[in-house]
Design a protein around this nucleic acid. Sequence first.
DNA 1: TATTGTTATACTCTATAACTATA
DNA 2: TATAGTTATAGAGTATAACAATA
Lengths: 162, 162
Amino acid sequence: MAKSSTIAAAPEAPADSAETQASLDSALDDLIGYAMRRAQLKLFQNLIGRLSAHDLRPAQFSALAIIDQNPGLMQADLAKALAIEPPQVVPLLNKLESRALAVRVRCKPDKRSYGIFLSKTGEALLKELKLIAAESDMDATSNLDSQEREELLRLLKKVYQA
Amino acid sequence: MAKSSTIAAAPEAPADSAETQASLDSALDDLIGYAMRRAQLKLFQNLIGRLSAHDLRPAQFSALAIIDQNPGLMQADLAKALAIEPPQVVPLLNKLESRALAVRVRCKPDKRSYGIFLSKTGEALLKELKLIAAESDMDATSNLDSQEREELLRLLKKVYQA
DNA sequence: TATTGTTATACTCTATAACTATA
DNA sequence: TATAGTTATAGAGTATAACAATA
């Protein structure tokens, strides 16, 4: 367990005395970027905590979901979808393969590349993880009602989909 | 190296080429956490790019803003406000001090601690940085109109406050 | 003995360059 | 020569433990 969170640069939820963050940052309060970092940290830490029961990181979960939706994709495609560099895909996939959640299958036409697929185990676990992620979402946004959640999701998508 | 062999399914042609994040992640599209991570990354990268012109990181900017609002605070307070551990404050403050943006002043009553203050230079730079951050916010959320921006900020604050 | 700031250290994440094996 | 995957490596960011000076 690591505690990580940084408003400063990276992640985790504070949970401090009311005196600190709540009041010390008034100059930053009008920035969407600052509020989003704080909120994202809360969501992320919640998910990390829940996934840790399965010894998985958010990136692994995303990878499983992407593979499920795009069976047979190549590692370069996966890297692109995860917004990481190809070298980072290697240990990630190694981990999934070592746990028999996914497999690399040599491509027939081009023997340099692999097609990536989920195993039955991987598919079953992914189904569980989707529920966990949905729970995490609800838990971390428990201050919102369902209409607000819907609106927030719409706005967030609009921000990054261009 | 770890290749397992569970699935004998036939390798298939690579998913697509132009197909990237926009379409490969449809299973994750209903998660606020996923959308927020994507959106936050966009905002954060935009800000990082702009601050780099001043050789600063978001954490340094946040620190300047917090010191400005709380002149004389101790390093432990700053760590708490930034949601980082005290040891991480040291190099951060060293950097700000070396650039004459902030100063550590020995506390009279308790000689173990310092009071942290902005220099005039620091105050002036912070004023600039606030404009830059506001521009970055606008730029990275250019898909939204002002009403949507306001609503997004409200929802984000509601998520992490409380 | 407890606390403030610091040093030392380690683990994660991320990015780049170079290597292999195919093409 | 170009490409897919891999290896090696380096740089951030973040965490903990232990130390010095002070209380």
